[in-house]
Computed example of a mutant assay.
Amino acid sequence: MADTARETVVVVGLGNMGLEIAINLVRNGYRVAGCDPDPQRRALADRHDGIDTFADPSELPASDTVVLSLPSPAISMKLIETLGPRLGGRTVFVETSTVGPHDMVAFGEACDRHGVKIVDAAVMAGVEQMKAGRAVLLVGGDPAVIEHARPVLDAFSRRVTVFGGLGSGMAAKVINNAVAHALMVVFVEAGAMATSAGIATDTMLTLLTDAEMGIHRPLTHRYAERVRRGDFEGGMPISAARKDSTLALDLAQRLQVPIFAIQAAQSVYDLALASGYSDLDYSAIARLWEVWGTPAAQGLEGTPQ
């Protein structure tokens, strides 16, 4: 909870997510100065006690914390350039908009020019989760700056996970989303194959979600235990994994089910065999990335705070 002085936090962008951030801040004892050019969004915000709205960023009051929830990196940069010169040195921008890590670096350089600070706080939640207070923030930035902003971060999330320097929170979100989106393609392909093969959807879901037999083990066992430690002896060899993958491709062809992601993955096992890794556990495909100059476990040895 904020103290009884009712500290004011600025929230720029009162869209679906930004408005819920503002409401959470009010719920946890802050007063909010919300800014949005859209009169309809301001009208929605005005329904809540504790939120004062502004159409023009130049009219916003001074604040130690400015939360950005905006539709594009260009708009975030414009706000930083607009507000930065007139804010005090204690001000921290909290970027919750989804931007790239390189955008955060550029924002950091702009903030340095104006004597203010910034952290990235990527939101891992939908609007309903934010509304329910279940959002998780993936945070990057200078530890002292994060600590300064921490009470505000805690006020609109249930957990704050610090990944490293500026941009690392956004990088983590981008990577997480990339995995989720790629898996969605794989799941749809697998579902189409299962349906065409006469397997009930519920039965297939039971198999895939089984903690010991399904999709968990490639992450929790093969990546977490093998790739991180470079332990590729024993286990299911790449030659056997490639054989099973080939059978899946053959099944899809026979069922006339178009597949893309599963087929693309086959080429990685082909390359691993050609590289002489046939007898190693199939997690040894990670060695290919080491050969290509990108250690497969790089960045995973540390534990987020």
Score class of each variant (00 low, 15 high):
Asp3Arg: 00
Thr4Val: 03
Arg6Phe: 02
Glu7Cys: 03
Val9Phe: 10
Val10Cys: 15
Val10Glu: 11
Leu19Asn: 11
Ala22Pro: 03
Ala33Met: 00
Ala33Gln: 01
Gly34Asn: 11
Asp38Gly: 01
Arg42Ile: 00
Ala45Lys: 14
Asp46Met: 11
Gly50Ser: 10
Ile51Glu: 11
Val66Gly: 10
Val67Trp: 05
Leu68Gln: 10
Leu70Thr: 08
Ala74Leu: 04
Leu79Cys: 08
Glu81Pro: 10
Arg86Val: 07
Gly88His: 13
Phe93Ile: 04
Glu95Arg: 09
Glu95Asp: 10
Val99Ala: 10
His102Ser: 11
Val105Lys: 14
Phe107Leu: 02
Gly108Val: 06
Glu109Val: 04
Glu109Gly: 03
Asp112Gln: 13
Arg113Lys: 15
Arg113Met: 04
Val116Ala: 10
Gly126His: 06
Val127Glu: 12
Ala135Asp: 05
Val136Met: 00
Leu137Ser: 00
Ala144Glu: 15
His148Pro: 07
Arg150Gly: 02
Val152Tyr: 12
Leu153Ile: 01
Phe156Ala: 00
Ser157Glu: 02
Arg158Tyr: 00
Gly164Asp: 04
Leu166Asn: 03
Leu166Phe: 00
Gly167His: 05
Gly167Arg: 05
Ser168Asn: 05
Lys173Glu: 11
Ile175Gln: 05
Ala178Cys: 05
Val185Trp: 03
Val186Phe: 07
Glu189His: 04
Gly191Met: 09
Ser196Phe: 00
Leu207Asp: 13
Val227Ala: 09
Val227Cys: 07
Phe232Ile: 10
Glu233Asp: 15
Pro237Met: 10
Pro237Cys: 11
Asp244Glu: 11
Ser245Ile: 07
Leu247Met: 05
Val257Arg: 06
Pro258Thr: 03
Ile262Gln: 08
Ala265Ser: 15
Leu271Thr: 15
Ala274Arg: 15
Ser275Asn: 15
Tyr277Ser: 13
Ser278Gly: 15
Leu280Val: 05
Asp281Tyr: 09
Tyr282Leu: 12
Ile285Tyr: 07
Arg287Val: 08
Arg287Cys: 10
Leu288Asp: 06
Pro295Met: 01
